[in-house]
């Protein structure tokens, strides 16, 4: 690789990294504001105009807190686990395209860090590695609530990961590729949600369970598990779990928009430099829907959760693959 390319790659990585961090930091504020509005409250409004500096205040506060390590804990694992949770969540963004391309400084710049031919598989792999961070955190704390939360969380995540993997198979069959750029380009006329409505619903439910969002936020069920796997965490390490969780929310919403909602394609003609905007709007709509869900639904019970994953989602996902394949064969 030439020096130019190296500089481009490193710049892109840094820019994408800071975009993601900023989005994640403000997503916390957005969620608090939206939830507050839904519950007829004001929400954070003290730090800066309309509470806009709240993320900065939170960051400073969390950074200056003491890191408490429980005596009984497995010290090294305890200190490392949040990093294991955060890094894969951020790593997924290296294969997620944020738009098609723009012309800058007289050259065409692709709006993705890299376009590997197994991008979707890579993202699924990263979400699997994220489970380690959560389980190690829960186990190394040597706290009953944390351990229970960690075990529940990993059981839930691996169960729903199956349905999530299977729900995207229909899309892969239609696009004939794992590359997210190829998949989006295959939807230039019609988004895949039209062909794969069941797949989209399955993906959305499984994704919400995968990232422990309401109504699947059992690992953090306060009345029974205190705070779940991060009960013993404080300060920056707690913040890392938080960042990882919200980064995962943005990831699954972006993947949902890319795989099913046509990515940056819109039904009307639009210049390519607008592409990140269209994608951002679709992602924002999905994120809003996730927050709305949290403001609306109560939590599942654990046996209901496991039964739903294995007895409803999995058979429906298998059926969806079968029907998709059958229709494709018949149409051919």
């Amino acid at each position: 690789m030439s020096l130019d390319l190296w500089i481009e790659v490193i710049l892109k990585c840094v820019v994408v990294f800071f975009i993601v961090l900023t989005i994640v930091a403000y997503l916390v504020l957005v969620e608090r504001k939206v939830l507050a509005a839904m519950q007829s409250r004001v929400g954070p409004n003290r730090v800066g105009p309309q509470g806009l500096l709240q993320p900065a205040a939170d960051a400073v506060k969390l950074m200056t807190k003491e890191t408490v390590v429980p005596e009984e804990a497995d010290r090294n694992l305890f200190l490392m686990a949040p990093v294991v949770s955060l890094v894969p969540a951020l790593l997924a963004y290296s294969v997620i395209p944020l738009g098609s391309h723009i012309n800058l400084f007289g050259r065409e710049i692709q709006l993705h860090v890299t376009d590997i031919n197994v991008a979707l598989l890579f993202i699924l792999a990263m979400s699997s590695i994220g489970v380690y961070g959560i389980f190690l955190g829960g186990w190394s704390s040597n706290n009953k609530y944390a351990l229970m939360g960690g075990i529940r969380s990993s059981a839930q995540m691996i169960s729903y990961e199956l349905s999530m993997g299977m729900s995207v198979i229909g899309v892969i069959m239609l696009a004939g590729s794992f590359s997210l750029v190829d998949i989006v380009n295959a939807q230039s006329s019609i988004p895949f949600v039209v062909y794969q409505p069941v797949g989209f619903v399955l993906f959305w439910i499984a994704a919400m369970a995968e990232i422990n969002r309401t109504p699947f936020d059992l690992p953090e069920a306060e009345p029974e598990l205190v705070a779940g796997y991060h009960t013993e965490y404080s300060g920056m390490r707690f913040a890392m779990y938080f960042l990882g969780e919200y980064a995962n929310l943005v990831t699954v919403c972006t993947i949902g928009a890319l795989l099913f909602l046509g990515g940056w394609h819109v039904p009307w003609p639009a210049p390519t430099w607008m592409s990140p905007l269209w994608l951002a709007l679709k992602v924002a709509a999905l994120i809003f829907f996730a927050i709305w869900t949290r403001g609306t639904l109560p939590r599942f019970r654990f046996d209901q959760l496991m039964a739903f994953g294995w007895k409803v989602l999995l058979p429906v996902a298998l059926l969806n693959i079968f029907v998709t394949a059958l229709v494709m064969v018949l149409v051919d």
Partner: peptide, 27 residues
């Protein structure tokens, strides 16, 4: 094509290390 992932890994791990070091110094 896979090198950018390595770059991203270094940035993400570096961020985690710096954030933890700062909190270790300030806290």
């Amino acid at each position: 094509q896979y090198l950018p992932i390595l770059v991203m890994l270094i940035i993400a791990t570096g961020f985690a290390a710096v954030a933890l070091t700062i909190s270790w110094l300030l806290g």
